[in-house]
């Protein structure tokens, strides 16, 4: 995934795990010593979003660009002008879009800038997420997201999980769904994720699994 200067947009059904994936991708790059930027483009929902992880990102030297009033409980959909700096960046930038087509609208406003840059747009899917459990539902949702964002997805990321109840079998049994969805969307399946805690010691993992850390947690979890 060498995307020097590349813009990576993470989009999908709300609740499919975009923010957790964004945090993983960004922190992985940061750990390689890169200057990484995360953009919280979610101006739709004020809960469970990238900007809540400001401290975590800061610890790894990741720059965060967030909606102007994020975290203040003021519900205003306003993005800062700083966002235009990402199109000049030579370093990796990850954009965490809001859920569904509604959340992807903010991307559409940046269409002019995107059209002059190379970007990848990862479409995140989760077989266990209600209302996006079939390849058909996911293909339809992707069309809506692409229309709202005026961007084209470049690949599918299978992020099928059941929260803390995810096991190796949860992940494995979603693989055929992921392949079928990618085929229906006419996109490559980039990889499937597996939470670190679900990896069983000694178990052979199939190719194409990306281990991910569970960063998006509840405040009462240990």
């Amino acid at each position: 995934m060498g995307n020097r200067g590349k813009l990576t947009v993470i989009c999908g059904h709300y609740g499919c795990g975009k923010t957790n994936l964004t945090l993983n991708l960004a922190l992985n790059k940061a750990k390689e010593g890169r200057q990484v930027t995360v953009v919280d483009l979610d101006i739709v929902n004020p809960y469970f979003r990238s900007s809540e992880y400001r401290e975590l990102l800061k610890r790894y030297g990741v720059r965060l660009i967030a909606p102007v009033f994020a975290g203040t409980t003021l519900d205003t959909p306003t993005l800062p002008p700083e966002i235009y700096s990402i199109f000049e960046s030579e370093d990796p930038v990850f954009l965490d879009a809001g859920g569904d087509d509604a959340g992807a609208v903010a991307l559409g406003g940046l269409f002019e800038q995107f059209s002059q840059r190379e970007y990848e747009m990862l479409y995140v899917i989760n077989r266990y997420r209600i209302l996006s459990q079939t390849p058909g539902e996911n293909a339809q949702l992707l069309r809506e997201i692409e229309a709202a964002s005026r961007l084209r997805a470049t690949g599918v990321v299978n992020n099928s999980h059941l929260g803390v109840e995810t096991t190796l079998s949860t992940v494995l049994s979603a693989l055929p769904f992921a392949e079928e969805t990618a085929k229906l969307c006419m996109l490559p399946l980039c990889y499937s994720t597996i939470p670190n805690f679900a990896i069983e010691e000694g178990a052979a993992l199939p190719k194409g699994l990306l281990p991910v850390e569970r960063y998006v947690k509840f405040s009462w979890e240990d």
């Binding site: 609740g15 989760n126 266990y128 209600i130 459990q133």
Partner: peptide
Amino acid sequence: MKVLMKGNE
């Protein structure tokens, strides 16, 4: 099969 849902949903 279990599904992942938001409380509101």
